[in-house]
Design a protein around this nucleic acid. Structure first.
Length: 814
RNA sequence: GCGCGGGUGGCGAAAUGGUAGACGCGGGGGACUUAAAAUCCCCUUCGGGCAACCGAAUGCGGGUUCGAGUCCCGCCCCGCGCACCA
C-alpha cells in the first residue's frame, strides 16, 4: 500500500501556497455547495449564530473577523460532530451611522449601502467562513423591513406600543434624538455638541411590563455570567413600598422607598420638578421661586442634570403629614429626584440616605436617627448618613424600636398598609423602549393618522411601507422627520375611512431591526410570513450565539423581549431566543483599542495577502483567550504560519511504510482529547498550542511521519484553517469534504502514559522528580524518593506526615 | 461612587489547590550550506555559583493549607459598563 499522494519531484517541490489553495477551495465550496444548508431536511440541526455586522464604508474590521472566526470554528466543529450546521450572516445596515456617513460623503444611502455590502461580502468570503450566503439578509431591504413593520404591528395590537410625550436628549448638530447611552458627559457621542432637552411625541414599547420575566428567566440561560449580571443590573429590580403622604391641603403624594423602616426619620418630602402635582401644591408665596427653578431644570440637558452632585431645590410651601409620626413636614422640589424613576417623589430620610443628608445639610433641615448600629445609642450623633442595614436596629420609632432593619421593613410596611397608607411593591429601573427616530434611514413606522379615526395601524396587506428614495434626506431642526417633507408619500388614505390621512414620519430604532433577525435567517426567501413555523420549530431557539459584550444589555434584552411577546401571541413556541450566549473579547493592538485616530487599525486584506486566510484566522484565535480578546502584534503571525507550513510538509512527506510510532500516537491521542475538550469551551488558543506541541513531536529531528500520524491532525486543524485542511484531505485521497469526515476517534488506551514524572517535595518545596510507573503505590514511591541523595539530604528530621497524590506528587513533612 | 473583568518572563500568554512560565514571538548558540534562506538541534524568569546546586519570584500586605497564581480578608493599579435609581 502506498500513499495516494505522490510527492512532487525534488527541485520542483510544490510548497504551501495559501493564495492558490484558498482561491481553489473558495470556488470548490461554491460549486459543490459545501456550505449550503439543507434547511428542511438537514439532520441534527445546529444554529450557530453570530451578531451581524454594520457594513461600514471602511470595510471589515479585524474585530469583526475575530468574532466571526471564533463562531465559524465552533460551527465547523459542530458539523464535524455530525450536526447540520446553519451559520448565516447578514447586514445591519440601517441607522444613523450610515445616514451620517452618507451625508458626509454626499451619496445617498440607497446607493452607498449596496456598495459597502458588496465590499464586506468580498472580504468575508476571503476569510473562509462556512456561511450559507443563500440565506443572507439585509435589514434595509424592503422584503426584510416589511416584517420589521409587521413586528411593530404585533406589539401595537397587543397594546405594547404606545405614544407619549417624553423629554429626550436632542443633539442640535445631528438633529436627532439620542439615547442616554449616546450622550457622553452632556455631549453627543458622535459630534461632541452639547445636548439639549426636548419634549417630543414618541413611540414606546412597554418592555417594563416584562421586567420581571426578563429578570427571572436569566437564571435558566447558559450565558456568560458577565452578560447576565449586566442585564440584571440594567433591569434593576428593587423591593420596597409605595407610601401615601396626605398633604394638609387635601392632595395625596405617593412616594416609592426601599427603606420603609426609616419612615419615622422622614423629615421632608421631595418631588421631581416635573411632578404633575407641583402646580397644585405650590403656595402663592413660593410660586415665583418654584417656576424659576422648574424653568432652570427643564432647560438643562438630561445628562448634565443627572451628573451634577451639588444639591439644589426650593420649597413649595405645602406641608404633608408623615403617616408614621403624625408630624407635619415640608414639601420641596429638587432636581435630584427623577421623574422617570419610582413615582417621581420621595420621602427624605436624611439620617439614612446620603443624598437626603447632603440636601438637609445644605438647607438646614432636621436630621433624625432612626437606625443604630449595635454600639450606637439613640442619640449618637450622625456625622454622615448611616446607610448600612446589616446589624442595625430601629430607634426613635416607637413600637418598632429594637427591631432589626430587615424585619422592620416588613413590619412597618404591614403596619402602614393596615392604615391604607402603604403597599409593598417591586420597582424596576428598566424603562420603556423609545423606538422613534426623527430621521430618514430606517423603516417607516407603519401608522397612519386620520383626523376622523385617530391613529390607525397600516393593514398587514399594505406592508411594507416603503421608504421613499428621496434626494433630500437631511434632518432639520424642526424635530420632524425628513419624510414629512415628501408630500406624495406623506399624504395617504386612511385605512379605516378612506379619508385624508397622514403617515407617521418617524422611522424605527435599528435595535428593532436586530431584535428579530435571527428568526428570519432560516426562512429567508419566504415572502408569505416573517418566519415559517415548521422551519422555526426545527431551527430555533438558537443553539449558540456569539457576539460582543457591547451588546450585552440593549440588543440582547430587546431580542429577548420581542421573542417573549411573539411567544405570548402564539407565534413562537419558546420565549428565550438564545439558549447559549458567549461574549467574545476585544482585539487591541499595542495595548490600545484599534481606532482610525490612533492609526493602529489592521487591514485584514493586507494580512491575508501576505500570510493567507488560514494563518490569519489561526493567529487571531491564538492571540489569547477568545472570551477575553488579545493583543494583535504583527510579528506573532509568523509562528502560526510556520505551524501550517510544517503541517503541509508533514503531509507531503507522510509515508505508509512501517508502523506509526507508539510515542507519537500517544501524543496524537492526547492532542485529540485536548482539542475536543477546548473547542466547546472556546479555548481556541490552548487548542492551537496543543496542535503545535504535537507538530513538534511529529517532526522531531526531521523524522518522516507515518500517514496515520498526520491524517487526524488535518481533521483537528480543519475548523481553524479550513482551506489547507481541505487541500491536504484531498491529497490524502478523500473525495468528500473534510468537514463531512467526522472527528478523529479518541483512544484512551493509546493516550495513556505508562510512566509519569512524580514531583517530590519536602515541606512543600520541590526537591526532585522521579520518573515512575503511572500506578506506583505510595510505599514504592517513598522508597525511591528516600534512595535519591538529592532528596534525602533535605530530610533533616523524622518524617511527620506523607502526602501522596497518585501519579503527581509526593510531599514529605519533617 | 457602584457593578463586572484583569494584573504571571523582554513580549502575547499557559497552569481540575499539587513540578509556575506549556505554546508562540523576540533573543543567543550550533548542525546542514561555498554562502544565504528554509529546516533541524540546544539555551533563554531573576540573583548567586565553574558546576552539581542554592535562593527569590505570579500587583502589595495578611490568612487558611502538608502545599496557594488559584481559596479567604484588607489594600493598590489598569480596562470596561452604569451612574443622584430613592
Amino acid at each position: 500500500m502506498t500513499s495516494s499522494y505522490i510527492p512532487a519531484p525534488a527541485g520542483d517541490s510544490d510548497g504551501y501556497d495559501p493564495a492558490a489553495i484558498e482561491s481553489k477551495w473558495r470556488e470548490r465550496w461554491q460549486t459543490r455547495g459545501t456550505n449550503k444548508v439543507d434547511i428542511a431536511g438537514g439532520e441534527r440541526p445546529f444554529y450557530a449564530l453570530m451578531m451581524f455586522p454594520y457594513p461600514s464604508a471602511e470595510g471589515l474590521h479585524v474585530g469583526n473577523l475575530f468574532a466571526f472566526t471564533g463562531n465559524d470554528i465552533y460551527g465547523r466543529f459542530q458539523r464535524q460532530q455530525g450536526h447540520t450546521v446553519f451559520e448565516p450572516l447578514g447586514y445591519d445596515a440601517f441607522g444613523i451611522h450610515s445616514e451620517n456617513y452618507a451625508l458626509k460623503v454626499g451619496e445617498h444611502p440607497m446607493r452607498l449601502i449596496p456598495k459597502n455590502i458588496a465590499n464586506f461580502r468580498r472580504q468575508l468570503e476571503r476569510a473562509g467562513l462556512m456561511v450559507d450566503w443563500s440565506k443572507s439578509l439585509d435589514t434595509t431591504a424592503p422584503d426584510y423591513y416589511k416584517w420589521t413593520q409587521w413586528v411593530f404591528l404585533q406589539l401595537y395590537q397587543r397594546g405594547l406600543a404606545y405614544k407619549k410625550k417624553a423629554a429626550v436628549n436632542w443633539c442640535p448638530s445631528c438633529k436627532t434624538v439620542l439615547a442616554n447611552e449616546q450622550v457622553i458627559a452632556g455631549a453627543c457621542e458622535r459630534c461632541g455638541t452639547l445636548v439639549e432637552q426636548r419634549l417630543l411625541e414618541q413611540w414606546f414599547f412597554r418592555i417594563s411590563d416584562y421586567a420581571g420575566r426578563l429578570l427571572d428567566n436569566l437564571d435558566t440561560l447558559d450565558w456568560s455570567d458577565t452578560t447576565r449580571t449586566a442585564q440584571r443590573n440594567w433591569i434593576g429590580r428593587s423591593e420596597g413600598a409605595r407610601v401615601v403622604f396626605r398633604v394638609t391641603s387635601g392632595e395625596e403624594i405617593t412616594v416609592f422607598t426601599t427603606r420603609p423602616d426609616t419612615i419615622f426619620g422622614a423629615t421632608y418630602l421631595v418631588l421631581a420638578p416635573e411632578h404633575p402635582l407641583v402646580d397644585a401644591l405650590t403656595t402663592d408665596a413660593q410660586r415665583a421661586d418654584v417656576s424659576a427653578y422648574r424653568d432652570r431644570a427643564t432647560k438643562q440637558d438630561l445628562v448634565s442634570r443627572k451628573s451634577t452632585r451639588e444639591k439644589s431645590g426650593v420649597l413649595t410651601g405645602a406641608r404633608a403629614i408623615n403617616p408614621a409620626t403624625g408630624d407635619e413636614i415640608p414639601i420641596w422640589i429638587a432636581d435630584y429626584v427623577l421623574m422617570e424613576y419610582g413615582t417621581g417623589a420621595i420621602m427624605a430620610v436624611p439620617g439614612h440616605d446620603e443624598r437626603d443628608f447632603d440636601f438637609a445639610t445644605v438647607f438646614g433641615l432636621p436630621i433624625v436617627r432612626v437606625v443604630a448600629a449595635p454600639d450606637e445609642g439613640v442619640d449618637t450623633l450622625l456625622a454622615a448618613a448611616f446607610t448600612e442595614d446589616a446589624g442595625g436596629h430601629l430607634v426613635n420609632s416607637r413600637q418598632f424600636d429594637g427591631l432589626a432593619v430587615a424585619e422592620a421593613k416588613q413590619a412597618v410596611t404591614t403596619w402602614l398598609a393596615g392604615q391604607g397608607a402603604a403597599t409593598a411593591v417591586t420597582n424596576y429601573r428598566l424603562h420603556d423602549w423609545c423606538i422613534s427616530r426623527q430621521r430618514y434611514w430606517g423603516p417607516p413606522i407603519p401608522v397612519i393618522y386620520c383626523d376622523a379615526c385617530g391613529p390607525q395601524p397600516v393593514p398587514e396587506r399594505d406592508l411594507p411601507v416603503v421608504l421613499p428614495d428621496i434626494p433630500d434626506f437631511r434632518p432639520d431642526d424642526s424635530g420632524v422627520s425628513p419624510l414629512a417633507r415628501h408630500a406624495e408619500w406623506f399624504h395617504v388614505a386612511c385605512p379605516a375611512c378612506g379619508g385624508a390621512g397622514r403617515r407617521e414620519t418617524d422611522v424605527s430604532d435599528t435595535f428593532l431591526d436586530s431584535a428579530w433577525y435571527f428568526l428570519r435567517y432560516p426562512s429567508v426567501g419566504d415572502d408569505r410570513v416573517p418566519f415559517d413555523s415548521s422551519i422555526t420549530k426545527k431551527w430555533l431557539p438558537v443553539n449558540s450565539y456569539i457576539g460582543g459584550n457591547e451588546h450585552a444589555v440593549l440588543h440582547l434584552l430587546y431580542s429577548r423581549f420581542i421573542t417573549m411577546v411573539l411567544h405570548d401571541m402564539g407565534h413562537l413556541a419558546f420565549e428565550e431566543p438564545f439558549t447559549r450566549f458567549r461574549a467574545h473579547g476585544l482585539i487591541i493592538r499595542e495595548g490600545a483599542k484599534m481606532s482610525k485616530s490612533k492609526g493602529n487599525v489592521v487591514n485584514p486584506d493586507a494580512f491575508i495577502d501576505q500570510w493567507g486566510a488560514d494563518a490569519f484566522r489561526t493567529y487571531l484565535m491564538f492571540l489569547g483567550p477568545y472570551e477575553e480578546g488579545g493583543d494583535f502584534r504583527d510579528a506573532g503571525i509568523s509562528g502560526v504560519r510556520r505551524f501550517l507550513e510544517r503541517l503541509w510538509l508533514a503531509a507531503e512527506l507522510a509515508s505508509t511504510d512501517g508502523e506509526p510510532d507508539p510515542a507519537v500516537l500517544r501524543k496524537l491521542h492526547q492532542t485529540i482529547a485536548k482539542v475536543s475538550h477546548d473547542i466547546p469551551r472556546l479555548s481556541y488558543n490552548t487548542a492551537i498550542a496543543a496542535m503545535m506541541e504535537y507538530m513538534n513531536v511529529l517532526r522531531k529531528g526531521e523524522r518522516t511521519p507515518h500517514r496515520s500520524e498526520v491524517e487526524p491532525v488535518v481533521q483537528l486543524v480543519a475548523a481553524f484553517a479550513p482551506h489547507i485542511a481541505e487541500e491536504l484531505w484531498e491529497r490524502f485521497g478523500h473525495e468528500a469534504s473534510v468537514f463531512d469526515s467526522g472527528w478523529p476517534a479518541f483512544d484512551a488506551e493509546l493516550a495513556r502514559d505508562e510512566s509519569v514524572q512524580l514531583a517530590v517535595q519536602v515541606n512543600g518545596k520541590l526537591r526532585g522528580t522521579l520518573t515512575v510507573a503511572r500506578e506506583i503505590p505510595q510505599e514504592e514511591a517513598l522508597a525511591l524518593a528516600l534512595a535519591e541523595p538529592g532528596i534525602a539530604k533535605h530530610l533533616t528530621g523524622p518524617t511527620r506526615k506523607v502526602i501522596f497524590v497518585p501519579g503527581r506528587l509526593l510531599n514529605l513533612v519533617v
